[in-house]
Each structure stands twice: as C-alpha cells, then as structure tokens.
Design a protein around this nucleic acid. Structure first.
Length: 580
RNA sequence: GCGCCCGUAGCUCAGGGGAUAGAGCAACUGCCUUCUAAGCAGUGGGUCCGAGGUUCGAUUCCUCGCGGGCGCGCCA
C-alpha cells in the first residue's frame, strides 16, 4: 500500500481495536477522520476517532484516546503521538514514511489509484445544445464540466459513455428550416423587410442557403412545404451538428455518441417508453391545477395524458401529451432516458444549465419509474456564466443574433484558459468570466501558474546535462531518498500525498473543480520550494558534484511533474515544457 | 405563491461536523551577477446574511426569516 492516509487509517483501526477490545466492525461503523490538521502544533496527521466513537462505547474521549495512544506509541511509524483536547490524537511521522512514499510512487505507472466505479456503467450526457446554430459561450461551462467529470469517472474505474442528445425533432427545427428557406429566397433576390419572430438570425445559415442554390437552383420555391422541408431539414441539421462538433473539437471535447431525437421518434421509441409507464399504471388522463400564486392569462383547464411523477417525489404530475395529442418534449425525453438505461447504464448523469433546474424532479421520477428504481439518476446544474470585459457585463441577445460564439472565445483566450476557468468555480456557483483578466493580464490566470510549475520542472531537468549528470528518469530504484529531508521538500511530498484523496472526493461529489484547486495549491508548494533555492543555494535542485542528492531531488521533481500532468490530463489542459 | 441554487475579506471565490476560517486580485513593503520573477516572502483587511435548533464541537447539518439568481400546464 503506497498511499499514506489509508495506511495510517489502517494502523489506527488495528490499534484502536486492540486498545478498546472491540470488534473492527464497530469502528468501521463510525466515520472517523484521518487528516492533515490546519496547524503544525496539532501534528502532521490527526484523527478524531475517540470523539466520534464516544457514544458508541460510552466512555470519555480522553480515556479512549489515552488507551489508543498507548498502543500507537508502539508503532515505529510515529515519532510522537499526542492527545489534544477535547479528544484529538495527533501524530508526528517518521520522515522515512514520506521518503518511502516518494520512492514507491515513482515506481508506479499510474498515480491515480482509486477504483470507486468498479466497472459500473455511467452515461454522462452534456452540451446537447439545440442544433440550430453554433455553440455560444454559455454552452461551454457544461461542456467542460461534463467532459472533465467523464474523464474523472473513467479514471476511477467507471465505464463511461459520453453522450450528446440532438434535439432535432421539435418545432425549433421547423423554425430553423424556415429560416434557411428565407435565406435561400434572399439569395435568389427576394427582399424581406420583416422576419418572423422565431427566425434564426446570424450569418451562419448563409452557406446552407448557398448549398441549396447550387444543388437545386430555384426549384425549392415551387415545391409544397412538406417536400421542401423534407429536403431542407436533414441537411441543415447535419450541417449544424457538424458545426457544433467542430466547435467542441476546438475545446478538445469528443463525445462517444450523438443520439438523434428524430431517430428515436421514427423508431417508435416514444410509444415504447410510455407504454412501459402505462403498464406500471403510472399514466392517466387528467386536468392539472393552475400553478399557485401565478395564473397564466390564458389559463384554461385541459385534459391531458399525465405521468404520475408525484409517486416518485415530484410536486405535480406532468403532461406527456399536448392537447393536439402530440407528445410533449418531456415524453420524448423520457424515451431518450429509457433508451440510455436500456443500453445498460447503471447511472445516468445529465449536465444541465441552471435554467433547467425545474426539470430535474420529473426526470428523476421518470428514470426511477422506468428502471424500477434500479438506475441512478443525477442532474448536475451549472449556473450561468456572466461574461465581462473590463469589469463591464457583455450582453448577449439571441434574438438579434448578437451572441458571442464559443469559437470567438476560444480564438481570443485559448482552450486551456477556458477549460481551466470553467472549472475554477464549483458548478452551483455563478461564474464570472472576464476577458480582460484571462487575456491581457494573463499572469492572473491560474492556469498559467500551474503550467508554469510544470514547465519549470522540465527546465531543471534540461539543465542536468550542463552539470554532467546523466540520470535515467524512468527508474529511481537506486536513488537515496533519505536525502530529501528539509521541510520545504517534505511539504511537497505531503501535498502530493493528498492527490488520491482529492480524486476520491471530486469523484464521489461529482465536483471536478476540486482538481483545479488542488493543482493550484500543489503548484504553490512547488514554487515556494523553488524560491528557497534562490535564498539558500544548498536548496537548489541541482547540486554540483553531489550526484546522490541531485538524483533524489530530481526524483521529487519528477513525481511532482507527473502529478501535475495527471491532473492537467484530467482537465484536458496541456502540460507545456516551456512557457512562451 | 411554490421549487432549485447562491449569500464567507474592498472585488472574484475555496472551505463535504473539527482545533486560531483560507486563496487570488486590489493596497502597501522587500527579493532577479544564482536551475524560467508568468515566481517568492511579508503587512493590513472578517458580527462566515440574521435568529433559533441538533452536537463534545456548526461557516458546514435542520427549521424559520432577509437578500440575490433561475424556473413554474399544450417551448425545447
């Protein structure tokens, strides 16, 4: 076992079991901590086991701690074990523990050792923007979040499918086709003084219109609407999906599956899913009450086909059919989620914008009903991105077509910066994205701070040959890590030892931002160590004529760099070898 | 009116029940003849929105307020 914290936890568990004469199952029941305290005076590692277990065994924490401590003092791993009020046990470790950890970690090919998923199948659906235009900047938060969460789950033993749902069946596609037809007519010389309300503005439909001109000349004008749309729709949707995939690709996002809503409809998947609900007796015809406190002007009671989502925790039952007997969007989405479940996923995760928050309970109910409570459903909501430039908000208006495309932002600030910034905030918090900050004052961008740490390490390694050191950096078996003993160096090892704990909590909580913050902190500890070399020459990494010491220090740097790299890989951010 | 999310330093935000609450930016002060100064060290700055409750212990969990964002039957 290379990981420090699990190792210490096991020792505490063993010794407490002996000292208190109780079964380990009792100790396993209480959830005690083994963690690094805030203050040095409280030790390098601390546990609250005696506080947490006091009720269970009905003894005073101080008595419990005293008993455990007397056992722990027999362990060679600890230099010192102390009691602290009201019941903490604080440890000081033998440095060799950290040194051994360094050595063992360097022999690993994979630093992340955290099999939470155990091969379970997880489906992560993200972006799923309507195929009616290019992605705009508002889409990118969910895109990056979903992508990194997927990477993380994959890394922790889940079998992940990254998925995009193409909403190509609703009325917005008719509007899209109609917009293309208007552009097509314009290209043929017709003037429009007024556009319909649901017209999609912007220039991105012009090449689509030109395609139809070159393919059909003016023949589309003579067709009836049905035939015309049958030609326009599929091509336009495909064109838009290609556009979207290209934008995603510029952000290094490549999803495994793109599922077409239209295809689900054509294959009769909607009826299939709804019949499934019907067979469970969860569908009925009824009239919903108006929303309390706010009655729409045109409210009138209507009988509709409803899904009894209240049986699964929703506030009201939800309509499956419109009054004209067409399926609602919700019905289609139920079918889509049923499809995802049928393809074998144990856990469905939807990454949604905060404006879809009202949708979560009903979908959760639907998944529970369709899978007979077998599938887990999680919705992660990303709050809005507030775009600013020089501190002033940049307004977007979809109506006028004045929105900032994702592509524009990528071109201006780069994929690495965007990805890091999108994760440098937890998903439930609104995010302010200031162009000025991430471009002109690039120094203030945390991504550079982390990348700089990575590049600096490469820089040291390059310098080795200037000093006639020729190390084999793929193996540190012969290195003597007892040389790594000053506090700045050991602090760096300790920080690296946190890596798997961070991975674990980020995975369990579905909070990838924890990785970004950790990388920043790790880089900070490294930069501090680096700077010590400027104050004290003996703390530089390369020490002339001292091969053993230099090799050990290069080992520490190598592990640091590998850790940073493994984190940046998860984030989909590049790990450069020099800054420019 | 109801539901979800948020409220922590001047600003932007971390802190999954632990000990004296942190970081970046902004302000001020030092550090490049030395492995990359996109860096480091330091100073100042807080009723963690408020009131109750659970607990040995609450910024964290629960309830109720206050303030802000989002959403609320045939849009997707």
């Amino acid at each position: 076992m290379t990981q420090i914290y699990p190792k210490i936890k096991k020792i505490i568990l063993d010794k407490a079991s002996i000292a208190l004469r109780i079964d380990r199952s009792v100790l396993n029941k209480v959830n005690f901590n083994v963690e690094k305290p805030n203050e040095e005076k409280n030790g390098e590692i601390s546990t609250n086991i005696s506080l947490v277990i006091q009720k269970e065994i009905k003894q005073k924490p101080s008595e419990i701690a005293t008993k455990i401590i007397s056992e722990l003092k027999k362990c060679p791993e600890f230099l010192k074990v102390e009691f602290a009020m009201p019941g903490f046990i604080n440890f000081w470790l033998d440095k060799s523990l950290w040194q051994d950890y360094l050595k063992e970690s360097l022999s690993l090919t994979e630093l992340i050792d955290c099999n939470i998923g155990n091969g379970s199948k997880v489906n992560v659906e993200y972006v799923s923007a309507n195929p009616t235009g290019p992605l705009h900047v508002g889409h990118c938060r969910g895109a990056v979040f979903g992508d990194v969460l997927s990477n993380l789950l994959e890394k922790t033993g889940h079998n992940v499918t990254k998925e995009y749902y193409i909403n190509d069946a609703g009325s917005q596609i008719n509007n899209l086709a109609n917009s293309v037809f208007i552009r097509y007519q314009e290209a043929l010389g017709k003037k429009f003084t007024d556009y319909p309300d649901d017209f999609y503005p912007g220039d991105y439909l012009l090449p689509v219109a030109r395609h139809f001109i070159s393919e059909y000349e003016s023949k589309l004008l003579e067709m009836n609407e049905e035939d015309r749309f049958a030609i326009i729709k599929p091509y336009t949707v495909e064109f838009m999906v290609k556009l979207i995939k290209k934008d995603l690709s510029a952000l290094s996002i490549h999803q495994d599956i793109f599922v077409s809503e239209q295809e689900l409809v054509s294959k009769g998947k909607i009826d299939e899913a709804i019949n499934n609900l019907k067979n469970s007796g969860l569908v009925y015809n009824g009239v919903l009450d108006p929303p309390k406190g706010k009655i729409p002007d045109d409210w009138e009671p209507r009988a509709q086909m409803l899904f009894e989502s209240t049986k699964y925790g929703d506030e009201v039952d939800r309509p499956l059919q419109k009054s004209n007997k067409e399926w609602t969007y919700f019905a289609n989405d139920i079918a889509y989620h049923f499809d995802k479940y049928s393809r074998g996923s144990d856990h469905l995760i939807d990454i949604l914008g905060a404006d879809h928050g009202g949708y979560v309970k009903r979908m959760s109910a639907a998944v529970a009903a369709l899978s007979d409570n077998k599938a887990k459903f999680t919705a992660k909501l990303c709050q809005m991105v507030k775009l600013t430039r020089n501190g002033k908000q940049v307004k977007m208006s979809k109506r006028s077509g004045e929105f900032i495309t994702l592509r524009e932002v990528i071109d201006e600030v780069g994929s690495d910066s965007i990805r890091f910034m999108m994760l440098y905030r937890k998903n439930e918090a609104p995010l302010e994205f200031d162009f000025t900050k991430v471009t002109e004052q690039s120094k203030d961008n945390p991504v550079f701070y982390v990348q700089y740490a990575h590049a600096r390490i490469t820089s040291v390694i390059k310098k080795l040959s200037d000093n006639n050191f020729n190390f084999n950096l793929s193996s540190f078996n012969n290195a003597d890590f007892s040389k790594i003993d000053n506090n700045y160096e050991v602090d760096l090892i300790k920080k690296i030892a946190d890596w798997n704990k961070v991975i674990e909590s980020a995975t369990n909580l579905h909070e990838p931002h924890r990785i970004a913050y950790y990388l920043y902190e790790l880089s900070s500890v490294f930069h501090t160590l680096w700077s010590q070399g400027k104050i004290d020459r003996d703390l530089k990494f390369i020490i002339e004529n001292n091969e053993d010491l230099t090799l050990a220090r290069i080992g520490l740097l190598t592990l640091t760099q590998r850790t940073i790299k493994s984190g940046l890989d998860l984030l989909g951010v590049s790990a450069p070898h020099e800054m420019n």
